[in-house]
Design a binder for these strands. Structure first.
Lengths: 229, 229
DNA sequence: GCAAAAGTGTTAGGTGTACACCCATGA
DNA sequence: TCATGGGTGTACACCTAACACTTTTGC
C-alpha cells in the first residue's frame, strides 16, 4: 500500500473495556492490576493497544476473550478520550467500550492468571489514570441503553426468571421497581418466551424460566418500537 | 518523557467534522473537495489528522476554525470508526464530531478558498469513503440530542424568534410541529428571554426576538430536568 | 380593508404509576 | 400449616396531542 499520509503524526491507540457482569443482585465490573510500567500494580480497567491490522471491534474482542474466555459478547462504544496528558507513560488515545457478559460463562481460572477481580460497581474505589471517568460515562450510557432497549438480557444466562430480570434492572438503575408494572411491560412487548421449566432455587413455589426471543425483538426494533424501563 | 510503550503499533488518527448550519429553513452541512491524494477531488467532510501534542477537541477546533472562521462552537463526539480498510490510502482511525454553528458568523470567503459548499442534508449525495455513514450516525445522534436538550440554539443567531426556532426544530426532525404546543413547551422551561425588539423581515406584524439564557438552562440541567421536543 | 404571519387556551385521550391480595410449594 | 417468594388487575393522576380564532401591520 502506498504511503499517502507519511508526514502526519501517528499515535498510540488503546482500547479500554468495561466488562460488566451481574451477580449477587449487583452489577460487577472486572478490574485488574496493571501488569506493566508505568503505574504497574495500580487498579485498572482491562485494555490493549490497537494493532496495525486490527479493527477496534477486534481489539475489544481480543481483550474480552483474553480476560474472560468468552467469544461472543454484546459490546458498545462509549467514546474516545484524547487529552494529551491523560496517560502518564506516553501520549495514548483511548477508545472505551463496555461489554455485557453472562457470568456463568466466565472462565474463573482467568481471575488468578490476570490478577483480576469482579467488583461491585458501587464499591469500585479509585482506579488508575482516568478510568473512573470511563466507568462513570459507561454506566450513564448503559443505563440509558437498558432503559430503552432490551440489552440487559446479555447479562443473564440464556434462561432466566422474571424476578431475576427485575432484580437486574433494579441493580442497573439502582432503584426499586414495581413488580406488576415491570412484568406487564416486559411481557407486553412479546419478546419473551415462557418455558415449562421452573427455577426452584430461590423459592418453594418456583419461578418460570423465560428465554429472550431475538427474532421478535429485531422485528420490533425494525418497526421503530422502543420501550422504557 | 520515557517511552514505555515503544513496542506497540501506532496509527494515524484523524478527526472528521460534520459542520452543521441552518439556513433557508433546512439544516445544511459543509462539505468540500478532497485536497490531497488519494481520492483527491471527491466530495468529503472536513477533517484533519490529530497531531502529537493536540487533544481531540483541539483538533476539532482547529478544523472548524480553518473552514468556518469561527472560534467557539458547540461540538459533540459521535463515535470512532476503526475498520482496517475504511481509508484506502493507509490505515486511518477516524474520530467523528459534529459542530453546530451560527451561519451568520460563517466567513464566506472560506467557501472559495477551500472549495467548500453548504449542502442541504436532504440532498447530500454520495460522499467519499464512509462519510455518508458518519453523516447518518451524526444526524441520528443530533436529533436525539436536540429532542432532549436545548442545544439547537447553537444553530441560531444570538437573537431569534419563536417561528424561527420552530422552523429549526421542524427541519431537524423533518416533521411539522404544532405551533401552540411548541411555543408552550419552549416558554414553559423558562430559559428564553423575550426582548422588546421585533423581527419584521418575515411578516408585517413582526415576531418578538428571544435570547437563550444559558444560566437558567444550566440550573435546570443541574436539577435533572429534561424536555422532549 | 385585506393579506399574511404572529400569537394565544382548552379538552380528550392515552400513558405511566401506585397499589393489595391470592397462589404454590417445601419443610 | 405456615412461611416464603411468585404471580396477577385496576383506578387515578398526569402528560401529550389535537384543535381555531384573534391580533397586528404594511401595502
Amino acid at each position: 500500500m502506498e504511503r499517502f499520509y507519511q508526514h502526519e503524526d501517528k499515535v498510540l491507540l488503546s482500547v479500554d473495556c468495561i466488562i460488566l457482569g451481574f451477580k449477587e443482585n449487583a452489577i460487577h465490573v472486572l478490574i485488574a492490576r496493571r501488569k506493566f510500567e508505568p503505574l504497574k500494580g495500580e487498579r485498572s480497567l482491562l485494555g490493549g493497544f490497537v494493532r496495525k491490522a486490527e479493527s477496534l471491534n477486534e481489539t475489544v474482542a481480543r481483550v474480552v476473550l483474553e480476560y474472560t474466555g468468552i467469544e461472543q459478547v454484546y459490546m458498545e462504544q462509549v467514546g474516545t478520550y484524547g487529552e494529551v496528558g491523560r496517560d502518564i507513560g506516553e501520549r495514548v488515545v483511548s477508545v472505551v467500550y463496555y461489554a455485557l457478559i453472562d457470568m456463568e460463562l466466565y472462565d474463573k481460572t482467568l481471575e488468578e492468571r490476570h490478577n483480576a477481580r469482579w467488583v461491585n460497581i458501587r464499591e469500585v474505589g479509585t482506579l488508575t489514570l482516568d478510568h473512573n471517568q470511563f466507568l462513570a460515562d459507561t454506566l450513564r450510557l448503559m443505563r440509558r441503553r437498558t432503559a430503552t432497549r432490551p440489552v440487559g438480557f446479555n447479562l443473564l444466562p440464556e434462561k432466566f426468571t422474571l424476578p431475576q430480570l427485575q432484580s437486574l434492572y433494579e441493580a442497573i438503575h439502582q432503584q426499586p421497581l414495581d413488580k406488576r408494572n415491570f412484568r406487564y411491560k416486559m411481557l407486553e412487548m412479546d419478546i419473551l418466551e415462557k418455558l415449562e421449566e421452573k427455577d426452584k432455587s430461590s423459592s418453594r413455589k418456583g419461578a418460570y424460566y423465560y428465554r429472550f426471543n431475538k427474532e421478535k425483538y429485531d422485528r420490533l426494533l425494525h418497526d421503530g418500537y422502543f420501550f422504557s424501563i
